[in-house]
């Protein structure tokens, strides 16, 4: 039995291809990319050794500081927004709509599967001011408010991005959290109701603690996705106005491909990777602690 389940030849046939592709196309490049951080230049012009110049530059570059602060702000705001909206929707599905939530769930899930580029272009047209007013400005004019140049200032661009990304993803988090909420045993809720817990108290004391595990995995999922945001911003604002909505991902892309500096680009990518790693481990750790405390 053990010899069959541990058959080395079969193991190579089954695991080999996946491991080989994964190693060659992901693991090796990750190491390789770290090597790039000590060089400057690119694949076409060739590389020259630069020592630790890239890291010195990384810590003094004001652009990096802007990009890093944008990335962190974006990740925090979107994660909070996604989880709050998702949780509110999930609660609505479970406690208000109950069995008839199926159709609403499907409709709210729609934007999740849509291509980000298409959604971003749609939002661009909705918030447009020139050459003609989009949907939002027309609505504002309708209630007597002047048109707003949404993409003209960094703060309003930021909120349009936030709005779009929450619109796009709330259905996903709603389904994810819904799956956690329906797993709460009905008799547990029933006994809490008999003990007089209703509405807000029921949610705070019973539902929230019981859905903590799925809530935490949603947060990890969300923060990991938002730190890597790329396509929605490229398509919606392309980092503008100026570079005020440029996240690390886009700054890395520009540095590498527009300015042809692979070494510095790799340094920024490394910073981003470490950021993802640290945040994930941090949340994971703190969640572990909380769980054992309970």
């Amino acid at each position: 039995m053990q010899s069959v389940l541990g058959d080395k030849k079969a193991l190579i046939i089954l695991l080999g291809p996946a491991l080989l592709v994964y190693t060659l196309v992901m693991l090796v490049p990750i190491i390789w990319s770290m090597g790039y951080t000590f060089f400057s230049g690119n694949a076409i012009s060739g590389f020259t050794f630069a020592g630790t110049d890239n890291f010195t530059r990384l810590f003094t570059d004001p652009e990096v500081r802007t990009a890093l602060s944008f990335t962190v702000r974006y990740a925090i705001v979107i994660t909070i927004g996604q989880i709050l909206m998702g949780y509110a929707l999930a609660l609505m599905y479970v406690f208000i709509l109950k069995k008839s939530s199926n159709i609403i769930r499907t409709l709210v899930f729609f934007p999740v599967v849509l291509p980000t580029v298409a959604v971003a272009l749609l939002f661009q047209k909705m918030f447009e001011i020139a050459p003609q007013n989009g949907l939002v400005n027309s609505l504002l004019n309708g209630v007597g408010v002047e048109s707003v140049d949404w993409f003209g200032s960094s703060s309003s661009s930021f909120w349009v991005i936030v709005l779009m990304d929450i619109w796009r993803s709330m259905g996903f988090y709603a389904v994810l959290l819904y799956a956690g909420l329906v797993d709460i045993p009905e008799d547990m809720l029933e006994s809490a109701r008999l003990d007089g817990a209703t509405g807000w108290r029921l949610i705070k004391n019973i539902v929230l603690p019981l859905s903590m595990p799925v809530l935490l995995s949603s947060i990890i999922f969300s923060i990991n996705g938002t730190l890597k945001v790329f396509d929605s911003i490229v398509a919606l604002t392309n980092g503008g106005p100026g570079s005020s909505t440029t996240p690390l991902t886009l700054y890395m892309f520009r540095t590498s491909f527009a300015f042809g500096d692979y070494g510095y680009g790799s340094s920024i990518a490394l910073l981003l990777t470490l950021l993802c790693l640290i945040v994930t481990i941090f949340i994971f750790r703190s969640s572990r602690r909380d769980l054992t405390k309970d």
């Binding site: 994964y22 196309v25 992901m26 693991l27 090796v28 490049p29 990750i30 390789w32 990319s33 790039y36 694949a43 076409i44 990991n224 730190l227 890597k228 790329f230 991902t249 890395m252 892309f253 590498s256 692979y262 680009g265 790799s266 920024i268 990518a269 490394l270 981003l272 990777t273 993802c276 790693l277 994930t280």
Partner: peptide, 22 residues
């Protein structure tokens, strides 16, 4: 090892791959 791959951003592998394909 496979799990870490979920976390690593695409930017980390783009440049070496670009060189390799080139």
């Amino acid at each position: 090892i496979f799990l870490t791959g979920i976390m690593v951003p695409g930017q980390m592998i783009l440049l070496p791959l670009f060189s390799a394909y080139f």
